[in-house]
Design a binder for these strands. Structure first.
Lengths: 343, 343
DNA sequence: ACACCTCCTGCAACCGCTTGCAATCCGTGT
DNA sequence: ACACGGATTGCAAGCGGTTGCAGGAGGTGT
């Protein structure tokens, strides 16, 4: 409450009777301090609970020991999981992680990038984002390019651009596994609930869906691919309702993510049908909501711990000049739960 | 990729032919710069997309323009919502918000406090945490007291301590509303699923439950108050199973939070019963999972936008020496959905 | 023409810590 | 007693901004 001033290495130095340089060396565990003196200094640091001012330190070193992460909304479990795992990995390597939510407002994505630069984070992880960069206002791409020129930028599970490190999820593989599972159970009429077509992720997964279906020799009926504006529960709900109104209904449904699948499940139940008895269902992201559902919904998992660690490793390697790979691909895997059954 | 150096006000100053002081004044919109010169400087700042180094700035100003927030796990929707709203409010007042997850490890809560101090955040919001401070190792309380002596600490919805600003949720009121709703529907046998008794939040809500029941003249049967170790879905699941094994079952169940309620719902469904036909159900937190459930679960809401803004306002007011109230109470309100019915 | 005032500006001292470099201290070897 | 080399230490110059204060440029009144 009464804002007293924090101690500095000068205070410590003076009390021990050495120069601040010596205290600094003790703090950073540098060699070249007589053991006995080192101990006395350490004792004083302990006594006062002295914590060096990280801004002053960052100012003189050139590294900030902090990486920034931008996501659209951490209330989405996918981002929450990714953030938690990234933070864990970052801490292990002595870095802090700072998170910002764009809340899916296009302008704010640029604003937040600038804020991260202002903070002089050592690297920026851009995770998600609703924007299809191909349709971006030019300033977005140029902002990113400019920033990437001096700070490593890592894109996570979204479209990337030259100059950024990219960690991509192999959605083709994931979708393949989903379709394979359903096909293996005998399903041939598989529908797909997806979100706004202009979103890059949407395009990518949609193509993956077509490819996967083709590789199993399954036809894709146009009315079985339902697009909505968002990628939330409500979109899944209304999308599924459309499917339910068809004369010839699909027997299985894949949702572009777990929220969509949850909405679909709700729509199915509303009309008195049951999963998996009447419809089989698969989601993406394997967030805990897929476990909360009744029945629990099979979902494509990304192994967040590995995913997060990979992002941080790439970021820190880039910072340390180790030139990590430009492109890394995360292999997803289907987690089978209770939402699919043999046809 | 090729790490070029960022520009400084010196570079700008030199190019315009003024002193860095003048550039600084332009940056901070200080008066006392000839308009024409100001424009030239602004143009150059724009041209180079110059962003001042916030660490250098923070070092000379004494404020960091950043507040820290510590929560146990942002994957829990309650924390995610609170964080998002706090960030929004902080940005509005020109501050950044930095989040850390303790992942419910006792030691790390202290570690993270120290990390926030290291970052020299202007204030620290401590939200949640599984620790009952009465049973804390002394160093925790003393760490907090020491920190609170120079940096405002705001506790959010958890036990507080002298020297900290406290924002408390009126769980007594919330529980009262929950019980009132059920009692109003004719329920008399109301059970309560809660978490580890040594957790402060647990104690508080439990007492609130007893009080609310008493105020409606309803008896509390000991076996209707089920304690589990955690406060997650599984605990709710197993807790509900215990209730289901009783000869005389309750007709309504209140979960200490939505996750517990979700677990309960699952247990109920597993045994072939239905909500709300066979059991009425109420949760706390009004997170989106309560909407995803089938049926959607009535839940006690805290109006996160207000809650978050309040936290930030208190933090920033404290920083600015406006001495905000030591104790603020959030009034919850029941959001009625589909999980309760007239008995 | 001169005193006086206002408005701009730049100087230089911080903010707290790191670090290259030079100085000092000490124990040895001769 | 003295040169020598390694281990310690302190000096001082940054890192990139902010700001109080003094000085200079013009404009005004007399």
């Amino acid at each position: 409450m009464n804002q007293s001033k924090a101690k500095t290495i000068y205070d410590i130095a003076q009390e021990v009777g050495v120069s601040p340089a010596t205290v600094s060396r003790v703090l950073s565990n540098s060699p070249g301090v007589r053991p006995e003196k080192r101990e006395r200094i350490k004792a004083l640091i302990e006594k006062y609970n002295f914590t060096p001012n990280i801004m002053a330190r960052s100012l003189s070193e050139t590294t900030r020991h902090m990486v920034g992460m931008i996501c659209s909304d951490v209330r989405n479990p996918y981002y929450a999981s990714l953030f938690v795992e990234c933070e864990r990995a970052a801490l292990e390597r002595g870095y802090a992680l700072m998170l910002s939510n764009t809340l899916t407002q296009q302008e704010s994505e640029v604003t937040f990038l600038e804020k991260m630069v202002e903070q002089r984070v050592d690297a920026i992880i851009v995770s998600g984002g609703i924007i299809d960069w191909a349709e971006l206002p030019p300033y977005y791409a140029s902002t990113l390019a400019r920033i990437a020129a001096h700070t490593p930028v890592i894109t996570a599970g979204r479209v990337s651009m030259p100059g950024c490190y990219q960690v991509a999820i192999d959605h083709t593989d994931g979708m393949h596994q989903a379709v394979a599972h359903l096909a293996g159970l005998g399903h041939r009429s598989i529908a797909y609930l997806t979100c706004a077509p202009h979103i890059q992720l949407s395009k990518e997964k949609r193509a993956a869906f077509y490819a996967a279906m083709a590789s199993y020799g399954l036809p894709v009926r146009e009315e079985y691919v339902v697009e909505g504006e968002e990628f939330d529960e409500f979109t899944g709900f209304s999308g599924m309702n459309k499917l339910m109104s068809l004369a010839e209904k699909p027997t299985a449904v894949i949702g572009v993510n777990d929220l969509m699948a949850a909405g679909a499940l709700r729509a199915i139940a509303r009309l008195g049908f049951t999963v998996p008895a009447d419809f089989s269902l698969i989601g993406f992201d394997n967030s805990y909501i897929s476990d909360l559902m009744m029945p629990s919904v099979s979902s494509i998992n990304y192994h967040y711990a590995t995913y997060g660690k990979m992002l941080i490793d790439i970021a820190l390697d880039a910072i340390e000049g180790k030139s990590p790979p430009q492109l890394t691909v995360i292999k997803p895997s289907l987690v089978i739960k209770e939402s699919c059954r043999v046809l």
